[in-house]
Design a protein around this nucleic acid. Structure first.
Lengths: 250, 250
DNA sequence: GAGTGCATCTCGCTC
DNA sequence: GAGCGAGGTGCACTC
């Protein structure tokens, strides 16, 4: 990893290092006392304060305050970053087209500027999604109940896509609505709409909310509309768990 | 702003600087070749690669790859960060309670480590939200149409909160559903549910979708259910625009 | 490119 | 602390 770092840079040095980082498609990090204005999908302004600024080679741009996970201001990937100097003050500008969005940052003082050329070919492997639940239940439908037979995944209706459609051991149409986290009333409403869509055709339609948990309100609503709940936790199995384990412990 | 920065630190130096930064409640930045494992709400693993790591004094923890706006791995505010060294290899650990979440990062090589004490008392001022639209339309109801009189904001129904409830010049109950961005079918569905809730009582109920735009599908659905659309852009007025303008140009 | 829905969403609000 | 809804959501996916 090639990198450059400069403490207490002059405005000119700040400008040069940022330009170099942009040209070389590096990650650029700044600690600066700055203020910012944004206009685009919304409009915002941020008064003077000390923050960290991160610019990525894909055009992503972030201003991080000393709290919160989210940046206080940002531009998405594919934005175009520029740096200017005017009356000895450095301005950072990031522009996005479609939708048109502008972020202008004034760097009153920069304490630390650095850029690093970063190589990274690894993608994150993640599990525990709703999709993982779907695959698992498709393979092991008896996790829902004995005799359940799934027939469709992502079945299209006018109210949206039904996660899993199938029949129970008595042949009754059964609709599964999956949630990877505790389900609230909105999940029950969604399930109810699917069930009502089908009830127009047939009378015996079961609706089952499948999730690791359910809120009290949601359970009440399930009872009210004679819908069901099945506790299922999303599976958390990583494909090549061994490999990373080795990375970690060897 | 007090800060420390070290190029190509030894594992011991990395450890010391991070610990110092944690103790002083600083923002900590690392450029490292690392791998990571996460387990909590989901589970994930990330193979070896060069990344930037940011730890904030509020416990926020991020691993940033060289692309995307979002961190590839993270922990939310109030997480607890620790650094350990084992066989000359540095491990970062961030733990969150409730829900229980663990992030473990192995730093194979660190290129740059720094921490900065950051002072920042400014909050972001932002406008252009749905709320701003609501306030504007409450003050200037004729923006909807001549003779419209709003009666309630955030009116509670069993299907949720109606943004603005009122009566038109003919005295007909009128429901406004506000969106600050282009509205899709889901917005129309929501509006339709409100209207149907009220139609049980009265027959003449108008539903108006108020947004800067509407998708084709949504417009079709509006026509189908005899709902209306009113083009209104969210207002973008900042309270103390002058102040930041001065910050910028003086 | 637009539209739809999930997310370790985050965040602020209310109860 | 739990639940609910908005967001400059971001992001992947489909059409």
């Amino acid at each position: 990893m090639k990198f450059i770092s400069k403490n207490n840079p002059t405005p000119q040095e700040t400008c040069e290092i940022i330009n170099e980082g942009l040209r070389k498609k590096a990650m650029i990090t700044l600690y600066s006392c700055c203020c910012a204005k944004y206009n685009g999908r919304a409009k915002s302004q941020l008064g003077l304060g000390e923050r960290m600024i991160l610019i990525k080679p894909d055009g992503s741009f972030m201003i991080h305050q000393n709290h919160k996970l989210d940046p206080v201001n940002w531009q998405p990937p594919k934005s175009h970053s520029k740096v200017k100097i005017k009356d000895d003050i450095v301005f950072l500008e990031s522009v996005r087209r479609s939708p048109e969005e502008h972020l202008l940052v004034k760097l009153n003082t920069t304490y630390l500027v650095s850029y690093c050329l970063v190589r990274d070919s690894e993608d994150l492997e993640v599990t525990g999604h709703e999709k993982d639940m779907g695959k698992m239940l498709w393979k092991h439908p008896n996790m829902i109940e004995n005799g359940f037979r799934p027939t469709n995944m992502e079945y299209a209706t006018e109210s949206g896509f039904i996660d899993i459609l199938g029949k129970d051991k008595n042949g009754f149409l059964t609709i599964l609505e999956l949630k990877s986290r505790k389900a609230g009333v909105s999940a029950v409403k969604q399930l109810l709409r699917y069930v009502n869509d089908f009830k127009e055709d047939k009378s015996h339609v079961r609706g089952i909310l499948v999730a690791p948990g359910v809120t009290d309100d949601a359970q009440e609503m399930l009872d009210k509309y004679e819908l069901e709940f099945k506790m299922v936790k999303p599976p958390k199995e990583l494909k090549i768990d061994k490999k990373v384990t080795l990375d970690f412990f060897l």
